[in-house]
């Protein structure tokens, strides 16, 4: 076999006045945007939905359970197409939204169902004692969640949340399906144009790995900052 690395492929011009390296980094930027935005949506909605799953009001708990089932059981790619093709048809004002926004919500809602399950499990692992202690000092139920249950639950679920956050990075690749110019999209197009698939895919793989590791480190840092002296945390 007569193989030669051609890493200088990244210095070639794409034809649009930028190099493939420029394009690679802009694609990385889109991946980070989709993943970061999706994670933000997932954390906000996942926390609310996961909390509601544990409240004594049956109706609210049932709505929250419905949310989880809905977004957990439909494949992500199908959800993305629903957001892209079906939702704007039903709600015309959404037609003017750029694909990136739809992708962020599709990924965010999909992940929110999984985050919600972690939040619910974290709260339930605390048992009734902490709720009763919170109520007994005069907190309302929302205050008990805000000051006691959620801060404890989040500390407990940081490990599973870390893998969810890393999943969001990987799952952001679906965005190529609706033509967002993120890393996977870049890989597909650039290897076609340059015929240097090996270098292109290796570079893209490297950036995914770097991103996932950075997410992992960030979560570990948060974990360390929040650790309570002497307290192992409910499930740990």
């Amino acid at each position: 076999m007569n193989f030669r690395w051609e890493w200088d492929v990244f210095l070639r011009d794409t034809g649009g006045g930028q190099t493939y390296l420029d394009w690679l980094f802009s694609a990385w930027g889109w991946t980070l945007t989709v993943a970061g935005g999706g994670w933000l949506v997932a954390i906000v909605f996942g926390s609310v939905i996961g909390t509601l799953r544990t409240v004594p009001q049956r109706g609210l708990a049932r709505v929250a359970a419905g949310w989880v089932e809905l977004f957990r059981n439909i494949p992500l790619l199908v959800q993305l197409f629903l957001w892209y093709h079906v939702v704007p048809a039903l709600i015309p004002p959404l037609k003017s939204l750029p694909s990136i926004v739809l992708v962020i919500f599709a990924l965010g809602f999909f992940t929110s169902a999984r985050v919600a399950e972690q939040v619910r499990a974290g709260i339930q692992s605390l048992g009734r004692g902490q709720t009763q202690a919170g109520l007994a000092v005069g907190f309302t139920l929302p205050q008990t969640y805000r000051y006691i249950l959620l801060p404890l639950a989040f500390r407990i679920i940081i490990p599973p949340l870390t893998s969810e956050a890393m999943n969001v990075v990987k799952n952001s690749a679906v965005a190529f399906a609706v033509s967002v110019a993120e890393l996977t999209m870049f890989a597909l197009l650039a290897q076609e144009e340059t015929s240097r698939g090996i270098e292109i895919y290796l570079a893209v793989t490297g950036l995914y790995v770097i991103t996932a590791l950075a997410v992992n480190r960030a979560m570990a840092l948060i974990d360390r900052r929040l650790r309570v002296p002497g307290y192992a945390g409910g499930a740990r």
């Binding site: 004692g129 902490q130 009763q132 202690a133 919170g134 109520l135 007994a136 000092v137 005069g138 907190f139 309302t140 205050q143 000051y147 006691i148 801060p151 404890l152 500390r155 309570v228 307290y231």
Partner: peptide
């Protein structure tokens, strides 16, 4: 909540808030 804030309760398993310091346990409410 108002009624409970006027009735102190002590539990078998203490139920201190584990993520708060001793002082914060006393001051938060």
């Amino acid at each position: 909540p108002k009624l409970r804030s006027r009735l102190g309760m002590v539990f078998q398993n203490f139920e201190l808030f584990p993520h708060l310091s001793v002082m914060e346990n006393l001051t938060l409410a």
